[in-house]
Amino acid sequence: MLTALCNNRIQVAAVMLFAVGFTTLLVHKNLLKKIIGLNIMDTAANLFLASIGYIRGRTAPILPEQGIVDASRYVNPLPAGLVLTSIVVSVATTAVMLTFSIRLYRRYHTLNIDEIYAITEKEQEEEP
């Protein structure tokens, strides 16, 4: 068991990082901390993917001038492609979440989502 964990230490670290990010996103009341949690979660997934794609001693799959020498010298390029796509998605969601946080802060002067919710509940009671 311990040997298996040591052999897959990067994947284990990625799973632990994911759990930290997931808990932060779920539990923290502060919007900025939630966004940090979201980013930790995405980074964990990227770390896992990158660790799958890397094989010690092999190189990036770039075609040399003399053509393919030996396919076994290169790593699989797909995980790197997936990581890049995942980073783009993560940047977009972070940007949108930050935009909402700024707009909420400007209006309610707090980033605590529970406090904002309590204020909007009061506003709602005054609605027709």
């Binding site: 994911f18 996103l25 995405d42 209006r107 989502i113």
Partner: peptide, 24 residues
């Protein structure tokens, strides 16, 4: 209005929890 922004934020938070699990 603040309520719609808050609703969108809550929607994003729940969605990102789901997205994270799906990505993993």
């Amino acid at each position: 209005n603040g309520k719609t922004i808050l609703a969108a934020t809550r929607y994003m938070i729940y969605s990102q929890i789901g997205s994270g699990l799906f990505l993993f």
